[in-house]
Nucleic acid binder design. Structure first.
Lengths: 114, 114
DNA sequence: ATCGTTGATCGCAAATCAACGATGGCGCAC
DNA sequence: GTGCGCCATCGTTGATTTGCGATCAACGAT
């Protein structure tokens, strides 16, 4: 087991990695749109998502894959259709990560340059 | 002035655009690291950031540019040095955007597929 | 005026991403 | 079995990103 003494540089790096991974997955409007759609609808079929977006089926599938790899959404084959839904907790993780950043040293914001 | 009636599709698109823009800027570990560094230190010179990262000066400068373009950080030339600091409010915007997403329809999370 | 320092920018190479048509697997209907 | 609809994946194209050395502009010091 690794020592969990403090915010080691290594641990922080992994933090950054995780943060970046999540942020990157949401770094494209189409993917934000898809996630919003899934959050609003609780769950829906891939076809509905394709219908909703001005993109080819292959492209949407690609975006879904990126979101899946970031674990922001889950897909389950259901006979003919594939059902997708958002993992709210996973998005919550990103929310918390940012919250953690914002909490770091909240004090004077005036320019301490000079 | 535009009508602010409801969450128009167009407005939502702009929302997604903004969301993606911010997320994309944070979609690289080095940039997360830089932002963390600036948040922790309130403000610091470019050189210090370069020293802190295992990257060449040109690369760091490039990352700083991306963060600047996303308005997540601010840079001010100060004689020889350039002083950078984080815009906490801007990061807060992303935080809120995610919060807004999470708020959308918080109910049954069981699979409504079948 | 000529350095040395700082940091932004240019230009290049490698890697990755975005979008799409085409293909293929899989399940259902016949 | 054959055919069809759904969707993941492959392969290709063009655009963007990443990382870096080299260069350049601005500035302070000599």
């Amino acid at each position: 087991m690794t020592v969990t003494v403090s915010t080691t540089a290594v641990a922080a790096d992994q933090h950054d990695q995780e943060f970046a991974l999540l942020a990157k997955a949401l770094g494209h409007p189409a993917r934000v749109r898809i996630l919003r759609l899934l959050l609003a609808r609780d769950a829906c079929y891939c076809g509905e998502i394709v219908d909703e977006l001005p993109l080819a089926q292959a492209t949407v599938s690609q975006h879904l894959k990126v979101l899946r790899e970031a674990a922001l959404i889950v897909g389950k084959i259901e006979g003919l259709h594939t059902c997708y839904w958002a993992d709210r907790d996973r998005l919550g993780e990103l929310h918390q990560l940012i919250g953690g950043l914002l909490a770091e040293a909240v004090d004077v914001n005036t320019d301490g340059c000079t």
